[in-house]
């Protein structure tokens, strides 16, 4: 009698296919993570064209370094790290402080059940935070990361990250209370 043993077969993931040179698989990876990468850049700069540029750069860098990516989790961490650090670098170089009001309005158009004025104001206040605080706040609330995870991405001690978060929240609360 012959036993039929179900054979397990691991389908290659988009990452492994992309690493083997499959461009469509790389496009899948981009589509999988573009919301995260673009979101981090957009919340950092408050400017769509700058966010697109930085997000494209991050994926271009990913393409060049595909061989060093070990897993899907590593890919996610790598993209968050590269995007955040690139945002901070670009901001340091350009020193631009443009907040597009059109973007802010467009961003909140879907939230009809929320107070659009409050959201817009909060968005503007986040834009006014210092660069590192803004990056830390975005990683905390967009990506729902703990300070222990954020510190690995931004390359700072965990207590420094906690302090940045604390100061950012304090500043936001203070400014919101002042206005209400």
């Amino acid at each position: 009698m012959t036993a039929i043993v179900p054979q397990t077969f691991d389908f290659p993931t988009a990452l492994t296919r992309a690493q083997a040179g499959d461009h469509e698989a790389f496009a899948d990876l981009v589509e999988q993570h573009e919301g995260m990468v673009y979101g981090l850049a957009f919340h950092f700069f408050g400017d769509r064209s700058r966010a697109e540029e930085v997000a494209q750069d991050a994926f271009l860098q990913l393409y060049r370094n595909l061989g060093s990516i070990e897993s899907d989790a590593h890919l996610l961490f790598w993209l968050r790290q590269v995007t955040t650090r690139r945002c901070i670098d670009v901001q340091r170089r350009v020193k631009m402080k443009a907040v597009s009001l059109d973007d802010a309005v467009e961003l909140r158009a879907a939230d009809k059940w929320q107070d659009p004025l409050l959201d817009r104001r909060l968005k503007q206040l986040v834009q006014q935070l210092p660069d590192v605080q803004r990056a830390v706040v975005t990683l905390r609330y967009q990506e729902d990361l703990d300070p222990s995870e954020i510190c690995r991405i931004v390359g700072m001690p965990v207590n420094t990250v906690k302090s940045h978060l604390h100061r950012a929240l304090q500043a936001l609360r203070r400014k919101l209370e002042k206005q209400s």
């Binding site: 573009e34 919301g35 995260m36 673009y38 979101g39 957009f42 919340h43 966010a51 697109e52 997000a55 961003l107 909140r108 939230d111 929320q114 959201d119 909060l122 968005k123 986040v126 706040v137 975005t138 905390r140 609330y141 967009q142 729902d144 936001l172």
Partner: peptide, 10 residues
Amino acid sequence: LKRVLRRESP
């Protein structure tokens, strides 16, 4: 903040 800073599609 979670609502305002959600992921964004390019």
